[in-house]
Write a protein that binds this DNA or RNA. Structure first.
Lengths: 215, 215
DNA sequence: TAGATTGTTAATCGATTAACAATC
DNA sequence: TAGATTGTTAATCGATTAACAATC
């Protein structure tokens, strides 16, 4: 059953709320009002209340929000209370950088293996995570119940690899390749296009320099 | 002088247009209509024309757009026709992954150096890019005319490093740390929050599973 | 010229902000 | 109870889509 659709804009803000609430918790703050949070995060209080009320009433009139409770509830909305098994496709620098990033595990994302075509990497491991060859991919996905594949390959290889991943039953792809993946509608894709991010920065630099010419 | 402000949504789409036009060029396509491009990119033709007309009329009635011309014009809008000197702050895996990424240079982004606090890395280099110690940072930024710093440090160090970078006159920060940087208004920041991206994917997986329960 | 397709205005849609009654 | 602050409706703002005259 389809519940009312939540807009992408709202989803994009949730992790940021989650991060701020986590910091508040660390600082021992127990309750916070939308007004106070709005100041810290530089968003309107109205937006915070609207966003949260897409998922239910987490606050209390006259009191505000309980930080720990709201943190946990947003965590649940984001699915961080569940375990997600991941693999990394591509044992290059970026793949290894992701493998080395321990914080993912704190959020429920477990990197179970790294896959590469380069036989030189065979048997090596990164932070205890073994690098496997492609021939093991299918059985690994099934045996280890892998949901997510992080795709850190050059564009040229990313396309065929995606076909395999879909065929082997992957549920979601975290895509770092500079290409729009073509997948069936039951496979989810989240893109991280680094060069596009850098181009946006470049645009802003260029515009800023036009508006503020140096003497 | 302030020209009419271009919305963030438009800027975010420009690099994707640029990528598609680049691919069309590689395939020897000389002209394309907004209608044809809209099919390939899965956006509306109307949006393409609106987006482009923020910057000027690049097309011709009855003909469409010249691919090479439009590619170059979008490149100019994004500032890719200019050289941008970059440094990477943080010689860890992510920093090295960025340093190894050659495509940045094709777009005018030159990585001039990597900086780290770890003396073990001193004098090493990645793809010919030397790793320097922090004491050289100030002079390096000035001597090498560095505009952009890619910040690939843990949250704890990112804050103080940002202060230094600002003090030393950096123009823009490409931020990979999980923190919102506090900078003066003349320093531009572009964030890449990997864990937030992964959380969005997690949300979508969770929602999908709710809507499509397994038998 | 006739057909195609842009540039641009107008209409629609959706997201953000403001306001305030409900209520803790 | 009085004050504070939410949840939610209404108003505003901005972005997307549709439509079409201009024109190549």
């Amino acid at each position: 059953m389809e519940e009312r659709e939540i807009s992408k804009a709202v989803i994009k803000r949730l992790p940021r709320y989650y991060r701020y609430l986590g910091e508040l918790m660390e600082n021992g703050v127990e309750r916070i009002s939308s007004g106070e949070l709005s100041k810290r995060m530089s968003v309107t209080a109205s937006q915070i209340r609207q966003d949260l009320n897409n998922f239910g009433g987490f606050g209390q009139q006259g009191y505000g929000y309980n930080v720990k409770y709201l943190y946990e509830e947003i965590g649940k909305i984001l699915g961080l209370d569940k375990k997600h098994n991941m693999i990394i496709i591509g044992g290059g620098n970026l793949g290894q950088a992701l493998a080395n990033y321990v914080d993912f595990e704190k959020r429920g994302f477990y990197i179970k293996g790294i896959f590469d075509v380069n036989p030189i990497l065979k048997g090596l491991s990164v932070r205890g995570i073994q690098i496997h060859m492609l021939e093991d991919l299918e059985s690994f996905i099934k045996d280890e119940d892998i949901q997510i594949a992080a795709l850190t390959l050059p564009k040229s290889k990313a396309e065929e690899m995606t076909k395999l991943l879909v065929q082997y039953g992957i549920k979601a792809i975290w895509n770092f390749a500079h290409i729009d993946l073509d997948v069936p509608s039951d496979v989810l894709v989240e893109n991280v296009h680094l060069s596009e991010s850098l181009m946006q920065l470049s645009y802003n630099i260029t515009r800023y320099e036009k508006e503020h010419p140096r003497s």
